[in-house]
Nucleic acid binder design. Structure first.
Lengths: 330, 330
DNA sequence: ATGAAAGCGCTAACAC
DNA sequence: GTGTTAGCGCTTTCAT
């Protein structure tokens, strides 16, 4: 059923029917009787305006593109969940893309989203280069979790530097001097900033760098496992691991377990990314909790501000340490 | 830049340009020279056809609606990830909705998706009633994870009955006779089928039902915690928990830990839903692994078969037990 | 208080 | 080998 058909049935013009159905009957002084008739007929015939036609006409799709590197990573799943909720509240639907940490896929995705005329974009981009983002200068966009310092596109993210510094300081204050940092995807700003925070703390507290290692190549469990295994196979073992992501921490846990070592007695562990499970396992894991909820909420608000032509300011939100039982003083 | 503008620039008709750009130059015998000219101009001016206009004209959006009750639940996040990948391979984009286990929201969502003219729908529906699904009789739809036996809409799901039976049998064979089943959302078929499998095993092996308990109301961690707590507060404790979902299992773990009990020495635990973490924690958790990958893949294939007017058959895929260290013989 | 007509950007039937 | 034209279903300007 189309608007034209419905209006024919009612012996009214499409114009009038459209006006009633889009809630503009007051504005155009449509008679109460007509309004009632139209509304009744719409319900009776289950008429819903074709959004595709509406979108074409109005040049607005009420759709926001959400581009995420890995939706099966709990951190991003939680973020997506929050964002979806916020957008829904504002009457928008989410067009989702999982780029699988692949820059080419991301580039292609962005082009797709643009030709689909999404009203805005929320992206956690891949890669240290932002070239592929240049094309969307005109499209309201907010970067989430990952960003580019010198780019004009606004972002909302955790203060990864500060969070990592805090974690490292925490280890150092407990006399850990041999620390291995299990890093994630090296070409992401989140990883780079965490590493920077780690290194800065090491430097500030005059820790000898000869016992400091930074190893790893992505945020997966497998990579955490592999990295930790490599470290643990050396004779000279560290006294603490700093995992730069929740999946990495779980991978490290697996490696530690296989070597029959005990956390924290044999080796301490602190991790980025809070996980409900971290509280529940034995030992419970000390973490740096990212403010996922706030990121989702703020990013959505900012996106709508941009759409409304208001000014916005990028934000780095402080992470919070949650102290548990996976780190001991030595 | 629109097609009309581009064609004016080229001194060609929109038709010709459209034909070249949609790869039909052969079919319409457009001259090689024209083809080259058009392609070059399209690239030069970054022209991408407006999908909204295309969709309206072609009555096809290359968009599939994915309706999920809780994307932050790792089981659904994994499923969504797999599905998104499969759809992308076939050139479709995903319109995502998290219904938050709310029937009203789901009903509204479905209506939204329909007026957006998605080409098909993949839904893990909420509720034991399927009334709200009746409206989409004409829209290609496949139900995932949750389904309705007497409905004509095809589905792909785990064989939950069989999986739960298997788990319960496993406990019984290890002499557990006091078992508490920690259930999820009662008005979902997955939960109902798991409970049915549980009860059937109890009956088949002549276990006295006086020591059998079934408790709980949803698939959340909180509910698992609450349920387990309630059970553990009784004097007469069970010897084993059967958690009907991964989050429930983690909640139970939390309750067990707080009572200073040890798994499996004090109480055994087996859970539905495999989780990477289940392998890594101490003790590792014995689970019934749902075939998430297969569900995602099969559901996508079926959806495309329906779109192509082929016949499809609903499928229940067997779950696989993964034996670990959270259950002992007593 | 209501309607006629144009047009959003695209494709396809039909013409030449 | 290429162009003209109509139309997908809606909203809105302008007219009455």
């Amino acid at each position: 059923m189309t608007l034209a058909e419905l209006s024919k049935l009612l012996n009214l013009s499409p114009t009038t029917v459209s006006r009633v159905l889009s809630g503009n009957s007051k504005k155009y002084r449509i008679s109460a009787q007509t309004v009632k008739k139209v509304q009744a007929a719409a319900i009776e015939h289950h008429f819903k305006p074709n959004q595709v036609a509406q979108n074409l006409r109005l040049k607005r799709t009420n759709t926001i593109g959400l581009v995420i590197p890995d939706i099966s990573n709990p951190f991003f799943a939680n973020l997506a969940s929050k964002i979806e909720y916020e957008l829904r509240k504002r009457g928008k639907l989410v067009l989702l893309c999982d780029t699988n940490e692949d820059t080419d896929l991301e580039t292609e995705t962005l082009s797709l989203m643009m030709s689909r005329k999404v009203d805005g974009l929320l992206i956690a981009p891949v890669g240290l280069s932002s070239d592929h983002l240049n094309n969307l200068k005109e499209l309201p966009t907010v970067l989430i979790d990952r960003y580019y310092k010198n780019l004009s596109i606004p972002y909302v993210s955790t203060n990864n530097y500060e969070g990592a510094y805090q974690a490292t300081k925490y280890l150092i204050e407990r006399n850990h001097k041999k620390i291995s940092c299990l890093q994630g995807l090296t070409n992401t700003i989140s990883n780079a900033e965490r590493v920077r925070g780690f290194n800065q703390a090491i430097a500030d507290f005059n820790i000898s760098t000869k016992d400091i290692k930074i190893i790893g190549s992505d945020f997966s469990l497998e990579n955490g496992y592999k990295s930790a295994n490599e470290i643990l196979s050396n004779e000279d073992m560290p006294t603490a691991f700093f995992a730069l992501g929740n999946q990495i921490a779980f991978g490290a846990l697996k490696a530690i377990k296989e070597k029959d070592l005990i956390v924290p007695d044999d080796i301490s562990l602190i991790s980025f990314d809070e996980q409900p499970y971290f509280e529940l396992i034995v030992p419970s894991i000390t973490t740096i909790k990212q403010p996922t909820e706030q990121i989702g909420q703020l990013a959505t608000e900012m996106l709508f501000d941009i759409i409304d032509k208001k000014d916005v300011k990028s934000q780095l939100i402080l992470a919070k340490m949650i102290e548990r039982n996976s780190v001991i003083s030595i």
